[in-house]
Structures are given as structure tokens and as C-alpha cells.
Design a protein around this nucleic acid. Sequence first.
DNA 1: GTATGATATGACGTAACGTTAGGGTCAAAT
DNA 2: ATTTGACCCTAACGTTACGTCATATCATAC
Lengths: 260, 260
Amino acid sequence: MKTLTVKKLAEISGVSVRTLHYYDQIGLLRPSIRTEKKYRLYGNDELLRLQQILFFREMDFPLKDILEMMDTTDYDLVKALMQHKSALLNRKRRISDLLKTIDTTIDNLKKGETMKNPEELYKGFPEEVGTTYRKEAISKYGVQTVEQSEKELMKLGKSGVEALQKEMENVFSELFVLKNDNPESDIVQEHIARHYGIISKFWGDSVVSDQKPDAYAGLGDLFVNDERYLANVTDGSPQPEFALFLQKAIKYFAENNLEK
Amino acid sequence: MKTLTVKKLAEISGVSVRTLHYYDQIGLLRPSIRTEKKYRLYGNDELLRLQQILFFREMDFPLKDILEMMDTTDYDLVKALMQHKSALLNRKRRISDLLKTIDTTIDNLKKGETMKNPEELYKGFPEEVGTTYRKEAISKYGVQTVEQSEKELMKLGKSGVEALQKEMENVFSELFVLKNDNPESDIVQEHIARHYGIISKFWGDSVVSDQKPDAYAGLGDLFVNDERYLANVTDGSPQPEFALFLQKAIKYFAENNLEK
DNA sequence: GTATGATATGACGTAACGTTAGGGTCAAAT
DNA sequence: ATTTGACCCTAACGTTACGTCATATCATAC
């Protein structure tokens, strides 16, 4: 039978020599022969096994699991693959979330220098939250949808909008008083629900209904990420603890009341 | 000013005490005060800074980068975020690929892995190059010569062949990256040489030695004439420019290294 | 005075290798 | 026969972001 040295095997399989040493060490892939002088020699079976290993490694299985899978004769491969699949799906979702957050963060940063346009509508709200979501909404649902909903907002009239703004400020100051309570307590959650209601009205149709839970949950993160959002509630001084409190409260609310 | 002990800070920020120790150690987050007895005391600024850190950590930034970002005043945050975004997009794509592979694997396992026909050997190669050349080779050298060399290929075993296939795919994807370089540049030619080596092994004796230069040069033309040959390298979308690039590179290689 | 809880430093463990470091071995070329 | 150069071996540290003891000191309450 033809045998292969480490280097050869490394070359045709595309892994490093060190990797083969390591796999030998942890018992994942042992050479079929050790010569007098301790040289490793691999046969065809080992090449085959290595291919298997690399396949699973490609799938991001930890080596420990691979070892177990390959040494357990009655291993349920399909089940393992499906499990792994769901883990991958989770990772993917998480990355999608991160991407969203990055986008809004980039938006926020850029917005800091530019923008001063016709959206006086949003004045007075937790600093520029409205405009941020306006941009997001535009990119998601198109400009005309958003402008449509803004027209509806207009119908409320200046005074109507101001009333909403005032209401929102009230909720915030009430929440501020509760900042040392448990974010998941009933009373806090009631206020959060009120806040959500106001925000919803404010968003109108610019954020489509089934996107609102996500958008709202994202709000909590924004408070933490950029203290300016709370600046006009806390009269200027940074309140990281309050922001954290809001984040937790909002997260809890979104998870328990919005996702269906 | 209000100060926080490790435990307190850990609690309100949601990280472990050990993490704070560690961040202190690597200089990422130093307490503003060290008491007589070395107790760490953190002020508001540190809490704020920690929030920033955690934000970036959420984004999967390595701590080293976070440290640099936060200590470099003129750091281009937007740029960093966009870079990071593209990295995340890559991860996401990779995961999507893995998911696809897992699905097909599960399918295969359920169907009861068969495949053992002669043409199965050529699977994974630039679509049908193998079989096409089989036909061509047969018409040129006769059936028995080809079958003989296929027996030799069989000796490599499935895994050996797969290793070759993998190697070939690697070369292609590396070449794809270089597709805007000069086809006659050293680096491109090096990869072409590798490719030729692999093809040669694959052809074995089915293509007689002194015919290989011609056959190989012909390969470049095939790429241009039939886009399917590159289909599985370019994940489906036609890449006429890449094909032309390969054709030139191969022609140059054959003329300068193979003919004599 | 002592029990309890918080804090400190130090050091090992983790995953999967990469990377020297220091020394044998084998085949070909001299 | 020897030198070269390519290849082989083991040992061991470095990497990331902490978790988990171990051991010792400190603060607070009873």
C-alpha cells in the first residue's frame, strides 16, 4: 500500500503539517505507521478519514465533536447536522442584527455633521430619534410611503404634534423617577407601554407594523449608545444608568408584548 | 462624585468582575481611583467608556481594536464600521454557504449515499471538463488508454481525487481574485503552473506527455467557449472577462513553459 | 471577636493551531 | 564519503477573552 509522509498528506489535503501533528496529538487522526525513526506514515484510510474531518471542520464543528462523531459508530449524523444547522441560523441572525445596528450607527454618526432639512417635525423628540428612523424607514419602504405618513402627521397639525411631543416628555420624566426600580416591574412596564404607544403614533405608517417591535427594541440600544438621545430629558448631564435602565425595560417589553 | 466598586460596576453593566480586572490589566478600562488598599473605584466617565466598549464588543470587534479606536482621537469611526460591516457580510455569506452544504448533505444522507459510477470521479471539477476531456481523449488515444488511466485515478481513491478537486478549486478561486492583474505577471503565472500541475496529475496518462501542452492550451479556449466550465467557480454568474483572462494566462504559460 | 462578604493578585485552562527552537534523517549531488 | 538541502521529530511559547480556582487581605455586621 502506498503511504504518505506528513508533508505529502499536508499538500494534497491542503492542511498544514502542524495541523497533522496536532490531530495526531489529540487522537483525531493517527498515522497508520510510525517508522523506526518516528516518522509518521499515513495510508489511504487516513486520507479518507482526513477528508471527513475537513468536511466537518468546514462546517465549523469543533474538533472535539468531530472526534466523537467519528468514533461513535452509531452516531446520528443527520441529527447532528440539523442541530448544527440551527446553530448556524442563530449566528446568521445575530450577524444580521449586528449589521442593522451598524447601519443605524453609521447613520447617526453621519447625521451629526449633516442634515438640517425639512424635518422640523421631529424637533423636540429625544434628540433626532425621529430623523434616524425616518431615514431607515425611507431606505426600507421607499420615500413616498414615508412622506405619505408624514402628511398624516401634518394633519394632526402643529399643535397635535406638539401634544405628542409633550406627552413623550412626560413619560420620560416619569420613567426617570422610576429609574431605580426593577425594569421589569409592572409599573415601569406600564410606562414603557405608554411610551411605545406614543412612538407608534409618531411613527405612523413610516414604520410598518410588523417591523415596529424590532425598531422599538433598537431604540433602547440607541439610548445606551448615544447619550445625546436622552440629553433633553436629563437636562444635559449624561445618565448612563438611566439609559441602561431604559434599555432593559424596553427589551423586556418588546420581548413580552410585541413579538407574537 | 459617585464612585463604583468593581462589583457594582459589574452589576449595572452586566459584565463580570473578572472582565473588569482584565480590562484594567490590558489598559482598556482603568479605574479612576485606586484606594489605599488597591481597591478599584470607577467614576461616571468610566461607566460611560465601558458602555462604549461594550457596544463595540457587541459588534464583535476585538478588544485590541477597541482600545485603539478609543485612544485614537482622530479615528475614523465610520470607516471602521463600514469595514467591519463588510467583514460581517462575508461571515454571513459563508454561513449561508455552509447552510446550503448542510442541506444537500442531509439530502444525500437520506437518499442513501450511492454514486459510484465512473463519471462520478470527475465531479466537482469545473463543470464537465473531466468528461469532456474524457471524450476527447478517447477519440485521440483510444478507449483502452483512457480506461487504463482511469484505473490509476481510481487507485488514488475517492478521497485522493477529492483532494485534487479541492486543490483545483483553490487555484481557481485564487486566480479569480487576480483576475484584474496582468495575465502574464509572475504571480498569475505561478498559479497557472500550479493549475497545470494538478490537471496533469488528474489526466495521469490519459493524455500522453508530449500532447499535454496542446491539451492544456485548449483548456483556455474551452473556458471562453463555454461558460459552464467556470460555473461552479463563479457561483453561477457568467464571467466572460475572467474566462478571457484565463485564456490569455494559459496561452502565455503554454507557450513559455511547455513548448520546447 | 468573629462570621460573612468583597476585594486583591496570581496562575492555570480554554481551541486550534502558528511559530520558532534545537536536533535528527534521508536522498541526491559533489 | 561527505556535504547540502529538504524533510522529519519533539518541546514549548503565543494567541483571545476571559472562567475558575487558590490564597490572602479588608470591611462590615453582629
